[in-house]
Nucleic acid binder design. Structure first.
Lengths: 155, 155
DNA sequence: TTAAATGCAAATTATTTGCAGAAGC
DNA sequence: GCTTCTGCAAATAATTTGCATTTAA
């Protein structure tokens, strides 16, 4: 895990008058030990491997903290469970493309869409800050075979 | 409610070997008696005004039917509750822009974004069919005042 | 007549919360 | 020592489902 990121998080925690605990440490290490998206449940499992005393409640209480800190992004990918993305620290402007069938996710950055969403937002009287785009489409496998092997499994 | 739409729905129901019931009639009439988005709960209320015997369970069982029929679109707007959009029958290619704070929704169509999402999808190995874009941004009020009057209320 | 549809209430599932004890500062 | 944190278990809240009964065709 990146040292600068670690410092940023712990400064945030200190500034808010919060405390450094073994459980939080484990959750933070787990969250940024991967570049994959994860759910609260998955983060719980990863955290427990580092510090077995981590409970589900503490994971659910820590996630909003990391989102507020700006290091984790809560994604709404149209699933039952919320998904968290640790990659916004490195790529603050990326967007997501999701297969409508198997939930496969691809991250992408695109100057044109960046510009276009700004134009559209302005035209409709919205401020172009804090924008995000999500494209749903059919993955290649779905297109070729009519369905995905990993249907519903996500990625 | 549009006669052609009504016929389309009832043909779909008949084709599937399903039956015409007073409750379904009421739910369908309620769903397409508005051009606003609605939740399952809101649809229940609207349907009850037409046919008081409509129950929550029947609403929840009828919604997927109308989605399958292609006349209603289930939107994922990042809220707790699912939202349904009856406007795809008239405007099959529209997208949504949502305020990150007050959940205000604006529908829009745009040739450029249509084309761009097709390019991006293809480039990433996705089929450009079934695509949809959702833009989150700050509404004018949020931008000017720092918060929205209707924060969290949706629209 | 018979398969589908209904309402009700109980079940499910992700997330949140109250509380008493544990622990950071 | 005082306040924040924690795990646990119970509470929420939207949606789904089992079942006995009703009803369309």
């Amino acid at each position: 895990m990146d040292a600068a990121l670690r410092q940023r998080i712990y400064e945030f925690i200190e500034q808010k008058g919060l405390r450094k605990t073994a459980q939080r440490d484990a959750i933070i290490a787990a969250a940024f030990g991967t570049h994959e998206h994860f759910t609260a449940e998955a983060l719980l499992e990863m955290s427990k491997k580092i510090e077995p005393s981590v409970s589900r409640a503490t994971v659910y209480r820590t996630l909003p903290l990391l989102v507020e800190c700006g290091v984790l992004k809560e994604l709404d990918l149209g699933r039952e469970q919320k998904v968290y993305d640790p990659n916004f620290v490195d790529h603050p402007h990326h967007n997501h493309l999701i297969c409508v069938d198997c939930d496969k996710i691809v991250e992408f950055e695109d100057q044109n869409i960046e510009l276009l969403e700004e134009c559209i937002s302005r035209r409709l009287g919205f401020s172009p800050s804090s924008k995000m785009v999500r494209i749903e489409a059919k993955c290649d496998e779905l297109k070729r075979l009519g369905e995905c092997k990993n249907r519903g499994k996500g990625k």
